[in-house]
């Protein structure tokens, strides 16, 4: 397994958010973590990369326990993280945003350059000198993914990549994620949009109220509409 999370419990102050969460991503796999707003998707990802101060449990990345490491160290080992709210550096240009994400090439993993990212997201190539703050939501979403790719990750946590985007951009995003998969990246996305998740994922987990409720292939989920209705329908 590329990433193996087990017994994850997270807290914000006195609020217990995650309860013994387990999930895993295999080599080259695309996995979806599905759930409604507030189910614990973002907290799960933030806990994996060490951004939640109070957490217990185990995070194994490429066979090593990274749960006690500082965020930057986890990321440098090749675990890329794309946050939900994009968090573009608004004062910095597209190129400069990439500079912040840049890390040394890693053996056995695709190496990304700005030029290769412009191939993935042609829109960005047309605005290399534009400050991040002067871009549309879709363009910012592309920028934030490209910025993480600049770190040459072997696995990417993508937090709600389709959120708030126009349908056309969502399709473009799905294509880009498939292209990343073809490059050999392992990917886990969090989603509320089941349709989008179906387009790209091999397997899925469903999280509700901080607990994993379902784990299986997309076909399993397809075959059990009652699960979908119980945990995902709005």
């Amino acid at each position: 397994m590329k990433l193996e999370v087990s017994g994850l419990n997270s807290f914000y102050g006195q609020a217990h958010i995650l309860f013994d969460v387990d999930f895993a991503v295999g080599e080259g796999e695309v996995v979806a973590l599905l759930g409604r707003n507030g189910a614990g998707k973002s907290t799960s990802f933030r806990s994996v990369v060490g951004l939640v101060g109070q957490r217990t449990g185990k995070v194994m990345f490429e066979g090593e326990d990274v749960s006690r490491l500082p965020t930057y160290d986890i990321v440098r080992r090749g675990l890329g993280y794309v946050p939900e709210d994009r968090r573009i550096f608004t004062e910095l240009t597209v190129e400069e945003n990439f500079v912040v994400g840049r890390q040394a090439p890693r053996s056995g993993v695709a190496t990304w350059t700005p030029e290769r990212i412009y191939e993935l997201f042609p829109n960005l190539g047309e605005m290399r000198r534009r400050p991040g703050g002067h871009m549309s939501g879709g363009e910012q979403q592309m920028l934030t993914i490209g910025r993480t790719l600049m770190g040459n990750p072997s696995l990417v946590l993508l937090d709600e990549p389709s959120e708030g985007l126009a349908p056309k951009i969502v399709e473009q995003m799905a294509d880009a994620i498939m292209a990343m998969k073809r490059e050999g990246l392992s990917i886990i996305i969090s989603e509320q949009n089941l349709h989008f998740a179906k387009l790209i994922s091999d397997r899925a987990y469903i999280i509700e109220k901080g607990r994993i409720r379902f784990s299986g292939t997309m076909a399993d989920l397809e075959a059990n509409p009652e699960i979908r209705d119980a945990y995902l329908a709005v």
Partner: peptide
């Protein structure tokens, strides 16, 4: 560039692998 980025959002800079 890292300094300017950190001026806006330190946590994000760490999330991109910067010590």
């Amino acid at each position: 560039v890292l300094v300017r980025a950190a001026t806006q959002d330190r946590e994000m800079v760490a999330s991109l692998g910067v010590n």
